[in-house]
């Protein structure tokens, strides 16, 4: 990561596509600059040698093996499932045609 440059616009565009966001030219410049500044600051983490430190993905490190029993509980009513739907048809959610 030592030769890392401030994030370039192509990378921001790629990340925006991955995030399903459309950026205007103005936004692209703005975000590129801001993300660059943030990443430059974050670069300070490279000062620390973490080779012998395990990662923490979760603060309660002792918590393991949390299960539920295989029992059927009630599902939502179709009315509840679909009441927030921007578009629906019968009991389905409706979306633009997905071409396969």
């Amino acid at each position: 990561m030592s030769d890392k440059k401030i994030i370039d616009k192509d990378t921001v565009l790629r990340v925006a596509r991955l995030s399903r966001l459309i950026l205007s030219d103005k936004e692209l410049s703005q975000y590129s600059g801001q993300l660059g500044a943030i990443l430059e600051y974050i670069d300070q983490l490279n000062e620390i040698d973490t080779r012998n430190t395990p990662p923490t993905s979760h603060p309660l490190s002792n918590l393991k093996n949390v299960f539920r029993e295989d029992r059927v509980k009630g599902s939502l009513s179709p009315a509840d499932v679909l009441r927030n739907a921007p578009r629906k048809k019968e009991n389905f959610f409706s979306v633009p045609r997905v071409i396969e």
């Binding site: 539920r68 509980k73 009630g74 599902s75 939502l76 179709p78 499932v81 679909l82 009991n91």
Partner: peptide, 15 residues
Amino acid sequence: GCSTKFAQAPNASTC
């Protein structure tokens, strides 16, 4: 806890 048997109405086995 939704049932895995779903030969039923669409979206009826959801939570």
